[in-house]
Design a protein around this nucleic acid. Structure first.
Length: 230
DNA sequence: GCGACAG
DNA sequence: ATCTTGTCGC
Protein backbone atom coordinates (compact mmCIF):
# COMPACT_ATOMS: atom_id res chain seq x y z
CA UNK A 1 0.00 0.00 0.00
CA UNK A 2 1.54 3.28 -1.13
CA UNK A 3 1.39 6.30 1.12
CA UNK A 4 1.12 10.07 0.64
CA UNK A 5 4.10 11.37 2.54
CA UNK A 6 2.34 14.66 3.25
CA UNK A 7 -0.45 12.84 5.07
CA UNK A 8 1.44 9.99 6.69
CA UNK A 9 1.62 9.83 10.49
CA UNK A 10 4.81 9.17 12.42
CA UNK A 11 3.70 5.66 13.42
CA UNK A 12 2.92 4.86 9.78
CA UNK A 13 6.21 6.39 8.67
CA UNK A 14 8.06 4.27 11.21
CA UNK A 15 6.34 1.12 9.93
CA UNK A 16 7.22 2.00 6.33
CA UNK A 17 10.86 2.55 7.28
CA UNK A 18 11.00 -0.85 8.95
CA UNK A 19 9.51 -2.41 5.85
CA UNK A 20 11.86 -0.64 3.46
CA UNK A 21 14.86 -1.39 5.64
CA UNK A 22 14.57 -5.07 4.75
CA UNK A 23 15.00 -4.14 1.11
CA UNK A 24 18.24 -2.22 1.55
CA UNK A 25 21.20 -3.73 -0.29
CA UNK A 26 24.66 -3.05 1.10
CA UNK A 27 27.37 -4.37 -1.17
CA UNK A 28 30.65 -3.40 -2.78
CA UNK A 29 30.01 -1.50 -6.01
CA UNK A 30 30.63 -3.90 -8.89
CA UNK A 31 29.99 -1.41 -11.68
CA UNK A 32 32.14 1.29 -13.28
CA UNK A 33 31.69 4.82 -11.94
CA UNK A 34 31.89 7.43 -14.67
CA UNK A 35 29.31 9.84 -13.29
CA UNK A 36 28.22 10.87 -9.81
CA UNK A 37 25.39 13.19 -8.78
CA UNK A 38 24.51 15.31 -5.77
CA UNK A 39 20.96 15.84 -4.45
CA UNK A 40 19.73 18.55 -2.12
CA UNK A 41 16.72 20.62 -1.03
CA UNK A 42 16.30 24.30 -0.19
CA UNK A 43 13.34 26.28 1.16
CA UNK A 44 12.35 29.60 2.66
CA UNK A 45 11.66 29.70 6.37
CA UNK A 46 7.95 29.31 7.17
CA UNK A 47 7.08 28.16 3.64
CA UNK A 48 5.77 24.83 2.37
CA UNK A 49 7.51 25.23 -0.98
CA UNK A 50 10.68 23.21 -1.37
CA UNK A 51 13.22 23.57 -4.16
CA UNK A 52 14.82 20.26 -5.07
CA UNK A 53 17.76 19.66 -7.31
CA UNK A 54 20.11 16.99 -8.63
CA UNK A 55 23.41 17.85 -10.30
CA UNK A 56 25.29 15.24 -12.34
CA UNK A 57 29.05 15.44 -12.72
CA UNK A 58 31.65 13.44 -14.62
CA UNK A 59 33.80 11.23 -12.45
CA UNK A 60 36.57 11.53 -11.47
CA UNK A 61 36.81 14.92 -13.21
CA UNK A 62 33.98 16.29 -11.08
CA UNK A 63 32.83 18.67 -13.82
CA UNK A 64 29.04 19.22 -13.91
CA UNK A 65 27.37 17.87 -17.04
CA UNK A 66 23.66 18.16 -16.26
CA UNK A 67 21.16 19.16 -13.61
CA UNK A 68 17.43 19.15 -12.87
CA UNK A 69 15.51 21.58 -10.65
CA UNK A 70 11.88 21.18 -9.50
CA UNK A 71 9.59 22.92 -7.02
CA UNK A 72 7.10 21.09 -4.82
CA UNK A 73 4.74 21.67 -1.89
CA UNK A 74 5.56 19.85 1.34
CA UNK A 75 3.65 19.89 4.60
CA UNK A 76 5.28 17.00 6.43
CA UNK A 77 7.42 18.63 9.14
CA UNK A 78 11.09 18.10 9.76
CA UNK A 79 11.42 15.44 12.41
CA UNK A 80 14.84 13.94 13.18
CA UNK A 81 14.84 10.41 11.79
CA UNK A 82 12.09 11.13 9.25
CA UNK A 83 13.79 13.55 6.88
CA UNK A 84 13.01 11.35 3.88
CA UNK A 85 9.28 11.91 4.20
CA UNK A 86 9.89 15.61 3.74
CA UNK A 87 12.49 15.56 0.98
CA UNK A 88 12.17 12.33 -1.01
CA UNK A 89 8.97 13.27 -2.92
CA UNK A 90 10.57 16.38 -4.40
CA UNK A 91 13.82 14.56 -5.14
CA UNK A 92 11.89 11.83 -6.96
CA UNK A 93 10.31 14.48 -9.20
CA UNK A 94 13.72 15.81 -10.16
CA UNK A 95 15.02 12.26 -10.55
CA UNK A 96 12.29 11.29 -13.03
CA UNK A 97 13.10 14.27 -15.22
CA UNK A 98 16.81 13.56 -15.33
CA UNK A 99 17.71 12.42 -18.85
CA UNK A 100 20.72 10.31 -17.89
CA UNK A 101 20.94 8.72 -14.47
CA UNK A 102 24.31 8.90 -12.66
CA UNK A 103 26.18 5.77 -11.63
CA UNK A 104 26.02 6.88 -7.99
CA UNK A 105 23.88 9.49 -6.23
CA UNK A 106 25.12 11.36 -3.15
CA UNK A 107 22.27 12.59 -0.98
CA UNK A 108 22.58 15.39 1.60
CA UNK A 109 21.76 13.35 4.71
CA UNK A 110 22.55 9.88 6.07
CA UNK A 111 22.41 6.45 4.48
CA UNK A 112 22.12 3.48 6.88
CA UNK A 113 23.58 5.51 9.76
CA UNK A 114 20.07 5.95 11.08
CA UNK A 115 18.11 4.74 14.15
CA UNK A 116 16.17 2.25 12.00
CA UNK A 117 18.85 1.81 9.34
CA UNK A 118 16.97 3.82 6.75
CA UNK A 119 18.25 7.35 6.31
CA UNK A 120 17.18 9.39 3.28
CA UNK A 121 19.88 7.96 0.99
CA UNK A 122 18.83 4.38 1.77
CA UNK A 123 15.15 5.29 1.47
CA UNK A 124 15.68 6.89 -1.94
CA UNK A 125 17.82 3.97 -3.08
CA UNK A 126 15.23 1.34 -2.19
CA UNK A 127 12.49 3.29 -3.97
CA UNK A 128 14.50 3.84 -7.16
CA UNK A 129 17.00 0.99 -7.23
CA UNK A 130 19.69 3.65 -7.65
CA UNK A 131 23.10 3.15 -5.98
CA UNK A 132 23.28 5.89 -3.35
CA UNK A 133 25.44 7.28 -0.56
CA UNK A 134 24.49 9.54 2.32
CA UNK A 135 26.79 12.44 3.18
CA UNK A 136 25.61 14.49 6.17
CA UNK A 137 27.05 17.47 7.98
CA UNK A 138 25.96 16.35 11.44
CA UNK A 139 25.65 13.13 13.43
CA UNK A 140 22.24 11.51 13.73
CA UNK A 141 23.07 8.01 14.93
CA UNK A 142 26.15 6.10 15.96
CA UNK A 143 29.37 6.64 17.91
CA UNK A 144 32.76 7.82 16.74
CA UNK A 145 36.08 9.28 17.76
CA UNK A 146 37.23 12.55 16.24
CA UNK A 147 39.21 11.81 13.04
CA UNK A 148 42.70 13.19 12.35
CA UNK A 149 43.01 16.82 11.31
CA UNK A 150 44.31 16.24 7.79
CA UNK A 151 42.27 15.99 4.60
CA UNK A 152 41.32 12.38 4.01
CA UNK A 153 41.64 11.36 7.66
CA UNK A 154 38.64 9.42 8.90
CA UNK A 155 37.33 7.38 11.82
CA UNK A 156 34.68 4.66 11.84
CA UNK A 157 31.06 5.47 12.66
CA UNK A 158 29.85 2.59 14.82
CA UNK A 159 26.63 1.06 16.08
CA UNK A 160 27.17 -1.64 18.68
CA UNK A 161 30.64 -2.24 17.34
CA UNK A 162 29.48 -2.53 13.72
CA UNK A 163 30.78 -0.01 11.19
CA UNK A 164 27.81 1.74 9.62
CA UNK A 165 29.74 4.62 8.10
CA UNK A 166 32.74 6.90 8.43
CA UNK A 167 33.47 10.38 9.74
CA UNK A 168 35.62 12.04 7.08
CA UNK A 169 37.82 15.14 7.29
CA UNK A 170 37.43 16.79 3.89
CA UNK A 171 39.35 19.94 4.85
CA UNK A 172 42.12 20.52 7.42
CA UNK A 173 40.90 21.78 10.79
CA UNK A 174 37.28 21.96 9.65
CA UNK A 175 34.35 19.93 10.96
CA UNK A 176 34.15 16.49 9.28
CA UNK A 177 31.26 15.07 7.24
CA UNK A 178 29.41 11.80 7.95
CA UNK A 179 29.45 9.22 5.17
CA UNK A 180 27.34 6.05 5.08
CA UNK A 181 26.16 3.74 2.30
CA UNK A 182 22.57 4.16 1.16
CA UNK A 183 21.93 1.47 -1.43
CA UNK A 184 24.05 -0.96 -3.50
CA UNK A 185 27.16 0.50 -1.89
CA UNK A 186 29.18 -0.48 1.18
CA UNK A 187 31.17 1.52 3.71
CA UNK A 188 34.59 1.17 2.00
CA UNK A 189 33.14 1.98 -1.41
CA UNK A 190 31.21 4.98 -0.09
CA UNK A 191 34.20 6.36 1.78
CA UNK A 192 36.43 5.86 -1.26
CA UNK A 193 34.03 7.63 -3.62
CA UNK A 194 33.38 10.59 -1.33
CA UNK A 195 37.09 10.97 -0.70
CA UNK A 196 37.63 11.16 -4.46
CA UNK A 197 34.87 13.78 -4.68
CA UNK A 198 36.59 16.19 -2.31
CA UNK A 199 37.36 19.55 -3.86
CA UNK A 200 38.54 22.63 -2.02
CA UNK A 201 35.57 22.87 0.29
CA UNK A 202 34.14 21.09 3.30
CA UNK A 203 31.32 19.45 1.33
CA UNK A 204 32.20 17.05 -1.48
CA UNK A 205 31.57 18.49 -4.97
CA UNK A 206 28.32 16.60 -5.75
CA UNK A 207 26.52 17.83 -2.65
CA UNK A 208 28.16 21.25 -2.74
CA UNK A 209 27.09 21.91 -6.33
CA UNK A 210 23.59 20.61 -5.69
CA UNK A 211 23.34 22.90 -2.67
CA UNK A 212 24.46 25.89 -4.75
CA UNK A 213 22.01 25.02 -7.53
CA UNK A 214 18.90 24.72 -5.34
CA UNK A 215 19.74 27.96 -3.58
CA UNK A 216 20.14 29.83 -6.89
CA UNK A 217 16.86 28.23 -7.96
CA UNK A 218 15.10 29.41 -4.80
CA UNK A 219 16.54 32.90 -5.23
CA UNK A 220 15.42 33.05 -8.85
CA UNK A 221 18.92 33.00 -10.30
CA UNK A 222 18.28 29.65 -11.99
CA UNK A 223 15.02 28.56 -13.70
CA UNK A 224 13.08 25.38 -12.99
CA UNK A 225 13.75 22.55 -15.40
CA UNK A 226 16.46 20.23 -16.65
CA UNK A 227 19.61 21.03 -18.56
CA UNK A 228 22.33 18.95 -20.14
CA UNK A 229 25.67 20.74 -20.25
CA UNK A 230 27.06 18.47 -22.98
C1' DG B 1 13.84 10.32 33.89
C1' DC B 2 17.67 12.67 31.11
C1' DG B 3 20.18 13.82 26.77
C1' DA B 4 20.41 13.47 21.51
C1' DC B 5 18.27 14.84 17.64
C1' DA B 6 20.16 14.49 9.30
C1' DG B 7 17.62 19.02 6.96
C1' DA C 1 17.45 24.20 6.94
C1' DT C 2 17.06 29.62 7.01
C1' DC C 3 18.20 34.24 8.98
C1' DT C 4 21.80 37.49 10.43
C1' DT C 5 25.81 40.18 12.49
C1' DG C 6 30.40 40.14 13.33
C1' DT C 7 35.22 38.37 13.13
C1' DC C 8 39.31 36.01 11.51
C1' DG C 9 42.47 34.80 7.81
C1' DC C 10 44.35 34.30 3.10
Amino acid sequence: MTQDYNQITIPEATALQQELRSKVLIQAPDFPINTVAGADISFNKNSTTVYAGIVVLKFPELQPVAYCLVKKEVTFPYVPGYLAFREVPALLEAWKLLKVKPDVLVVDGHGIAHPRGLGIAAHFGVLTGQPAIGCAKKLLFGKYDEPGEQRGDFSPLLNKGVMIGAVLRTKPNVKPVFVSPGYKMDVPGSLSLITQCIGNYRLPEPTRLAHNAVNHFREGTLPEGCVNTL
